[in-house]
Design a protein around this nucleic acid. Structure first.
Lengths: 214, 214
DNA sequence: GTCTATAAGTAGATAGAC
DNA sequence: GTCTATCTACTTATAGAC
């Protein structure tokens, strides 16, 4: 870890961000000192200020870039609401399992943002939530989802899915594909129309079909 | 807020806990100083140490008492798994809406517990989770729930329900009874057997009933 | 029971040497 | 680009006066 004096401009910047991310996620923003971060990457505390104006900017950049990436990484595909919901859910789980520290920070350190930065992050989060809410609203309007309140359902689903980061551990009992499938099952069912519409109409024909392929 | 010197033993203890709770929830344990807490209740920082050995004990007591209350406040009722699940879900929502700050701390400040305290809190949380998992396991065994993995479903449901505290605000658009009902609907459906067993058998009789009250 | 004063340490951030 | 040294302010916690 000890590093002799020298120039490392290309590596120190990214290493600073990586170390801050790791330490903020592990101990919390307020509990981590600039000296700790510096020690983690093998420089003295003063050197950090060549790469960030202050500690707050370090946190803000991590959160902003994370949410910008999340928004850039997924767009609702064409198709029916159920397909869009599946795409959203699977992407959300995958994305969150891939970046546990960033996700953790983005949800836990909101309190430590100064008001202006908080407003920016909150706006990005609402944008992400709005994408899910639009899917639920469209599905509800079409009768393929049974969602009494789209806003509540949006928040409930995101909380459920994001919670995967609180218990998932690399190399644990369940692999990622299985976890993704299980969350999708629960998400799908939680908003499913109680008596699936496409099956109700055909039911009336059952009498005519005289007990065939039910 | 400024307080003249005097003796207030009966009130300062509870007020200390209340102030710590409020400030920890608002700004985070690490970001709150003993001086801030003291100022909040109108005493000097030194006086706090008559009521708590240190800052860590303050946090730990809040979390431990919260979880002990949560466990004491609810026991699974007799009856079928669906009734038990409904009781769990409704109690969870009610309890969490009643104590947003305690809930917030109990989920957010785990990182700031010293290892011994963390172990105690983690044990209490596992005990709570185990109660839900037992209900899901029993329902799955009876075929009234369709839960592919009870542990994952337990964590998913608790995350979904607890998330209510992140957006609920007193006097908001939805009242508490509605919120409780909506979460119960989603929870129920998320673990429901996909083709409800009791309704499948009667379906075969539809042909005989010759299109009556469907 | 609370105060003031203080110990001993750490915080974020900057200045100037190299 | 990084270091060392430093400024100012704040931290937890304790000691002893009242």
């Amino acid at each position: 870890m000890a590093r002799t004096q020298g120039s490392h401009a290309e590596t120190t910047g990214p290493r600073l961000r990586a170390a801050a991310l790791r330490l903020f996620a592990r101990h919390g923003y307020a509990a981590v000192s600039m000296r700790q971060i510096a020690a983690e990457i093998g420089v003295q505390a003063g050197a950090l200020y060549l790469y960030t104006p202050d500690k707050q900017a370090l946190l803000f950049a991590l959160m902003r870039d994370h949410l910008a990436d999340l928004l850039a990484d997924w767009q609702p595909p064409d198709g029916d609401p159920e397909g869009q919901l599946e795409s959203f859910v699977r992407h959300h789980i995958r994305y969150h399992l891939d970046r546990p520290d960033l996700v953790f920070i983005a949800y836990m350190e909101l309190r430590n943002l100064v008001p202006e930065n908080f407003a920016t992050i909150a706006r990005l989060r609402r944008e992400y939530e709005a994408r899910l809410e639009a899917i639920l609203a469209r599905g509800a309007a079409q009768g393929v989802f049974d969602v009494a309140d789209t806003r509540l359902a949006t928040m409930a689903l995101i909380a459920m899915l994001t919670g995967v980061t609180t218990w998932y551990r690399e190399g644990g009992r369940l692999d990622r594909a299985t976890i993704e499938a299980r969350y999708w099952e629960m998400a799908r069912k939680s908003v499913a129309a109680s008596a699936p519409q496409p099956d109700i109409a055909p039911l009336a024909k059952i009498g005519h079909a005289s007990g065939g392929d039910i």
